[in-house]
């Protein structure tokens, strides 16, 4: 799988959360924003909706922070993989991520991070405003 950068443009996000719907439908076969790997946080005081999604950083601060080597980064795609058998929810990766894009769900007992849906992100096509876009590909710029 090749690298799929997703560009985030906060001011145009309207908070519709279609990205969360698409993500959870793809990964879980059900709509459940709690299990989505992209997450929109509202800031009513600033009147902003902020999508948070993995930016495939290098160096990968979450991977480096993990004391149990439960996280690894795929060299080609940049996607961070989680080994649920090794993860003990210590929270180090969550604290280390500068994008608020890796998250432990207490309710589901899962560490959640975007895996780009295996190369074809489900969320981006639902984002008509272009708050999430694929800037380096023919199909994905701001529409």
């Amino acid at each position: 799988m090749e690298r799929r950068d997703i560009q985030v443009n906060v001011p145009v996000c309207t908070g519709c959360r279609l990205c969360e719907i698409a993500c959870s439908l793809f990964h879980r076969g059900a709509v459940n924003p709690e299990g989505a790997r992209v997450r929109v946080i509202e800031d009513w005081a600033r009147s902003l909706y902020e999508p948070h999604i993995c930016q495939l950083c290098q160096p990968t601060l979450c991977v480096q922070a993990c004391p149990l080597e439960a996280l690894t980064q795929d060299s080609a795609s940049g996607v961070v993989r989680v080994d649920p058998d090794l993860c003990n929810n210590c929270g180090a990766c969550v604290a280390a991520c500068p994008h608020g894009a890796i998250r432990w769900s207490d309710a589901l007992g899962e560490l959640l991070v975007c895996d780009r849906c295996g190369g074809k992100p489900s969320c981006v096509p639902f984002c008509h405003r272009g708050a999430l876009s694929l800037p380096n590909t023919s199909e994905g710029g701001v529409r």
Partner: peptide, 23 residues
């Protein structure tokens, strides 16, 4: 606050149809 799956009969088809209709 809820964390339960809202399951559907045909998730992939719903994703595709939803995208097509919203487009």
């Amino acid at each position: 606050r809820g964390s339960q799956d809202l399951t559907v009969a045909h998730p992939r088809e719903l994703l595709d149809y939803g995208r097509e209709q919203l487009d």
